[in-house]
Structures are given as structure tokens and as C-alpha cells.
Write a protein that binds this DNA or RNA. Structure first.
Lengths: 261, 261
DNA sequence: GCGGAGATATCATATAGTGATATGCAAAAT
DNA sequence: ATTTTGCATATCACTATATGATATCTCCGC
């Protein structure tokens, strides 16, 4: 209902079902029918049917006693299918493993997804927050070293509009919320070829990122490394981490020439 | 169509949409409309509408030139939601990171999902196959060290029927396909409290697993470690890996007493 | 420039999903 | 114990919505 996308090629019922799936997130880890109904803004009855269907199809687990629904293992299987479908992952993975071994620090593969960065794979090497140890997290691109590294490969005008309009989100007291400052930072990234951010997502966490450029020089992903500022000063980061990070990013870079065969 | 689940609480359209999502896997990484139609056994028109809807809703990417569909980043976001929803993951993750650091070898968290094991989190420490480096892979439980470790915590009758009836799948020439042999192996696991398998999924790969038991002694998950038999002999595995593995599994074990509060 | 495969668009039809309402169940409140 | 409340589950008549056959359009190989 609400204002369904008129089109006849659009199956509203399926869209509603997806609303139910997407109702689950960090804060909504298990939901009752009425909660689902509230979150999705769908009719109670509709949610009942949709959730039931998702349950029968193995997409939702249902607690037999509380009657609440939870994501099922099928959600992980979908991620597995994604990993196979994205050629970058296959190319990057062995190199990321090497890098993580060499540095002994957390290494991530970040991809641009709209205005956000999604951490497609994570190789945590250190106790950290839960959010930083599992893949699939999304964060506004402007707030992250990876996002800035990627944006720095964009043509100046696109870069400018991105810095002007893209989503921002405060995660720590230190999170930079001023777009002018971010613009400056990114210009520096353009010069240096890498990006470093401090305490943007977690306090005293340093993010270092190098873009993975396509043949046209433009990047959609980045190799990123997170370390603690208590253990690493700027000099050591630049001398002991950056070179390897850069090498890894470059090694992943060349995209296949798109040949049909 | 076909033989839709009669029930009025079942929304066929949604189920069909899910069929489209699940058409993607290791071998089907990007699909055209006609391919989707073949795989899902759905009408061409139906697939057209469903795929289009999934695309508009951001669940499928569409190559503007080849017109083929691919899984989108949303699939990773779903996995992220799963990770938050499963309390075991949050409890296990820091301990798995520690373990992976200590051993310097690949560490996995495996969960029982039907007759299969699903690798919910992976911390690869060594170059390995792609399938073994990304999470979400499922493998028949009987073929894996983790599956055997879990089954060994089941009451004898259930164990027996599982060994008799559950799915088997050959992955290497060495994969044990004889149920009697598997039964024997699992009885040994019951005695020893851990499971070791050789070359079952990949040649010269050794899998070592310890079950994560619930308060009732029964397990649904296991901590698993994969090493190369070229680098590790039995003695070293038992003395240098097993103790830590066991400790980690035990440390994760105690499930919260299920109190409402 | 032709032929064919596959993607896109259209449309009349009835099936399949809708949402209001009613019943059932269990835990919290009195 | 009894009542109340909050949710889950079930039912049903209606029509909006998905259906699938058909037609058109577009791109590639020959």
C-alpha cells in the first residue's frame, strides 16, 4: 500500500517480504509479529503471513516458546553466494591474508556502496569491538579512511558533490562532522595516495587505507588496516604498515580486461 | 504453481522471490532472466517481474550492458544482521581471535544447520582455497571434524540415525563415504572429546574440532582448526593445537541460563 | 542486412494476497 | 483466583494484484 511503485513490473508482495527481512539489524536481533508490523509499517495480518512464509522457507528461525523470529543460517549462505559473485573478493582474499599475516594487525577489504562503505571481508588480528570483527557492516564513506581513499580517486567535481551531500554520522566525539575539513583531508589523500584517520569510528583507533584502482584509475574499493594509536605512532605506521598496504592494494588493482571469454 | 503450500498463511509470491535469490551460488554467480527462469522453474514473465523488483529494492545488481543480475551488497548486510542476532557469535568472536593469534593457523566457528555444518566465521591464517576463506559455506556434517565433534555430543540413538541417514558428499578421493566407518570415528570422538579428520574436504588438510556444549551437554557448534598435514604431524597437533582449541571451546560453552531478564 | 536469442512491454483474466474481525493463549495485574 | 492485557493464531468475503500468453524491441553474430 502506502505508495507502491505503480509499475506492473513491480511485485509489491515481494517488496514487502524484503521489508520484513531488512527489519533485522544491530539493534533488532529478534522480533515479534507486532514489532515487525511496527518497524515495517505493514499490516499485522500481512506481517503474519510474510513472516510465516519466510519461516517455512527457512529464511527466519522461530523461537517455539517466545514466538519471536530471528535471522536464519540462510542469511550467511546468501553472503557466501555474494562472495563468489564478486570477482574482486576472490582476487583480493589471498593477498589480504598475506598482508594480515605480515602486519599482525586487522585488515579489511572495503567497498563503496552508495554513500557508504561496506566492509566486505575482515581479518581481525586483535580484540576489537564486535561491529569491527564481522563483515557486512556499513558506515558513511566520508567518515572512514577507506571512503576517503576511494573518493580521492574520483574526478574533482564528483568528489566535491560527494563531500557536500553524502551522509555523515557521528560515532565518537572526535568524528569530523565538518564538510570543509573533510574536503581538505581528501585533497591531502589525493596528493599522498593514501588515507589516515584517527578516532573516527572508535576512540584511539587509527584507520589507514589505500584505494584499489581500476584500469581507468578510479577506485570502488580499498584495502584498509586498523590499529590502536596506543601501540602505533605515526612514524611507525608510515614505515611499517603503509608500504605493505600500498603493495597489497596495487597487487589487487588490475581489473580483468572485461573480455567476454 | 507446481505444488504451492496450499495454506492461506503462505504467500507464494514471496516464496518465488526467494527462489530467485537462492538461484545464485558458487557456480551461478551472475544470471540472465532466461537462466533464472530455468533454475527456478518459474515462468519467464514471473522471473522478469521478480528480478526487476529485487533490483529496484537493491537486492540484485544489474549489469547495464549484459542485462545479467548479480547479488548485491545487501546480501552482506543481511549476514551482518545475522551476526548480531546470534548470541554465540558475539561470545565466541574475541576468543576465536585470540586462538587464531596464538596458533597462527586457520580457525573457524562451525554451526550445525540441518544435516550440514555452516562455517559462520572464519579466521584464515594461511593461503587456502577460496571456499575455505569466506564464511557461509555449508558442508555435510558427517564429512567434517566439526560435524563429528557436534554429533558426538548427541544421545546414542540420535547419533545413530544421523550417521545412517544424513547427507554425504565426496570432496576428495579420501572422503569417507562409508557410514560404518564414520560411526566408528564418531565413537572415538565420544571417548576422546575431540575430532580429527584428514583430507576430507581438501587434500592434505587436517581438521581438528572441539564441540561447544550447552548446559545440557549437547552441542550445536564447534571450534574448528584447519592445518596442513605437511607442516603438522599428529604429535604436534595434539600437543600444540588441541589444548588451546579445547580451552577456547570450553570458554565459549556456558550458554546464558536463558533467564527472561 | 538478415536471423535469432533474449530482454522488455502490454493486457485481459482469475487467482492469490488483503485487512477487518474473531478466537485462543499465557503472563501480568488486581 | 479472577480479570485484564498483549499477542499470536485463525477465518473469510472482496478485489486488488500477480499471472502468463503474446507482441515488440534490441542487440550480436553471420
Amino acid at each position: 500500500m502506502t505508495k507502491t511503485k505503480q509499475n506492473t513490473l513491480f511485485v509489491g508482495t515481494l517488496a514487502k517480504g524484503l521489508r520484513v527481512l531488512r527489519a533485522f539489524d544491530e539493534t533488532h536481533t529478534e522480533l515479534s509479529l507486532t514489532e515487525l508490523s511496527e518497524i515495517t509499517c505493514l499490516d499485522k495480518s500481512a506481517v503474519q503471513r510474510l513472516a510465516n512464509t519466510l519461516h517455512l522457507e527457512g529464511m527466519l528461525d522461530k523461537d517455539p516458546v517466545t514466538r519471536r523470529y530471528r535471522p536464519s543460517h540462510a542469511w550467511l549462505k546468501l553472503a557466501y553466494a555474494y562472495y563468489w559473485s564478486d570477482p574482486l573478493i576472490a582476487r583480493a582474499m589471498p593477498k589480504l591474508i598475506d598482508l594480515s599475516q605480515r602486519l599482525g594487525e586487522t585488515v579489511n577489504l572495503a567497498q563503496l556502496s552508495g554513500q557508504e562503505i561496506i566492509y566486505a571481508t575482515r581479518l581481525p588480528s586483535t580484540r576489537t569491538t564486535f561491529a569491527a570483527s564481522v563483515s557486512g557492516r556499513t558506515v558513511p564513506a566520508l567518515c572512514t579512511s577507506a571512503g576517503q581513499a576511494i573518493l580521492a580517486t574520483f574526478p574533482p567535481e564528483e568528489r566535491a558533490t560527494a563531500v557536500q551531500s553524502w551522509l555523515l554520522e557521528r560515532h565518537t566525539p572526535q568524528t569530523v562532522m565538518d564538510r570543509a575539513t573533510i574536503a581538505e583531508q581528501i585533497e591531502i589523500v589525493v596528493q599522498k595516495g593514501f588515507s589516515i584517520t584517527y578516532s573516527q569510528l572508535i576512540l584511539s583507533e587509527v584507520g589507514i587505507a589505500c584505494a584499489i584502482r581500476g584500469p581507468d584509475g578510479r577506485a570502488w574499493s580499498a584495502v584498509q588496516c586498523s590499529v590502536s594509536s596506543h601501540h602505533w605512532n605515526d612514524d611507525r605506521i608510515r614505515s611499517e604498515i603503509l608500504p605493505w598496504l600500498q603493495d597489497t592494494a596495487n597487487a589487487i588493482s588490475p581489473l580483468p580486461p572485461k573480455g567476454k571469454q
